[in-house]
């Protein structure tokens, strides 16, 4: 790595530390907003994706594999494509324009929730499929209903489910396309870590971009680590 790049990265890291240490208001606000938007999107998506994942993993109905295939394929949807489609829907001249959601944090929440839905569905489906089939049989023979038996399997596969949720949160908080197209990167309203990084780069504020990127990385790492710890404690 040449000297200029190294010094730029070091300068960025120093900048990150100074910003954090001085409690920079804009940085704290952007970081908290990123966490809130992606956290809410993850919880929302989990509400409908986990049951769907269990259904697809354990249910017995025609077309199950086809539906799973569709969700697996949707894992790769580019964020800008999703952003564009939702922009057209939410635009004031679009079918959902009357909701006035475009350029608000709520639009990003919806976009990210949709973005990570296939991720949670596919991971949860795989996790419950991989669980020991004996557990479900045992629960059924002990008099559990179908739903109760499925819930037992879900509890057994809690590790995989938590992994799905963590990965989804990380995907949401690190994506740019949806946040930029639906949020518009408005200061004080919809600016997130990723859109701020993109903006500061075009504004030639390279050190600040690196500082923001460092915060984002630290955040993702912290979430992954703590989920890891929780998962271990729960599976004891």
């Amino acid at each position: 790595m040449n000297a200029k790049v190294t010094s730029e990265i070091l300068e960025g890291l120093m900048r990150a530390l100074t910003l954090i240490a001085s409690g920079d208001r804009a940085l704290i606000e952007i970081t908290l907003r990123s966490v809130a938007v992606s956290g809410l999107a993850t919880v929302l998506a989990a509400c409908w994706s986990i049951p769907l994942g269990v259904l697809l993993g354990l249910g017995e109905f025609r077309g199950r594999l086809a539906v799973r295939g569709v969700f697996n394929a949707l894992l790769g949807v580019p964020t800008v494509t999703l952003g564009l489609v939702l922009y057209l829907l939410l635009s004031r001249s679009g079918p959902l324009g009357f909701l006035h959601l475009l350029y608000t944090p709520w639009a990003i929440v919806i976009g990210q929730a949709i973005l990570i839905t296939p991720l949670i569905v596919s991971f949860v489906a795989s996790a419950v499929e991989a669980a020991d089939p004996e557990i479900r049989c045992l629960a059924l023979t002990l008099g559990a209903s179908e739903a109760q038996a499925n819930l037992t399997v879900l509890r057994e596969s809690i590790g995989g489910v938590l992994l799905a949720v963590t990965a989804s949160f990380n995907r949401a908080i690190a994506e740019l396309g949806v946040a930029l197209m639906l949020g518009g990167n408005i200061r004080g309203a919809t600016r997130l870590l990723t859109t701020a990084i993109a903006l500061e780069t075009t504004r030639a504020e390279i050190a600040l971009s690196i500082a923001l990127a460092a915060v984002l990385l630290a955040l993702v790492a912290a979430v992954s680590l703590s989920m890891n710890l929780i998962q271990r404690r729960m599976s004891k």
């Binding site: 908290l32 907003r33 966490v35 809130a36 938007v37 956290g39 809410l40 993850t42 919880v43 929302l44 989990a46 608000t104 944090p105 709520w106 929440v109 004080g188 309203a189 919809t190």
Partner: peptide
């Protein structure tokens, strides 16, 4: 935990 995360997120985002 999920309810707490959702509720605090909504509260925070309402500030915008």
């Amino acid at each position: 935990a999920a309810i707490l995360i959702a509720a605090s997120s909504v509260l925070y985002l309402l500030r915008s």
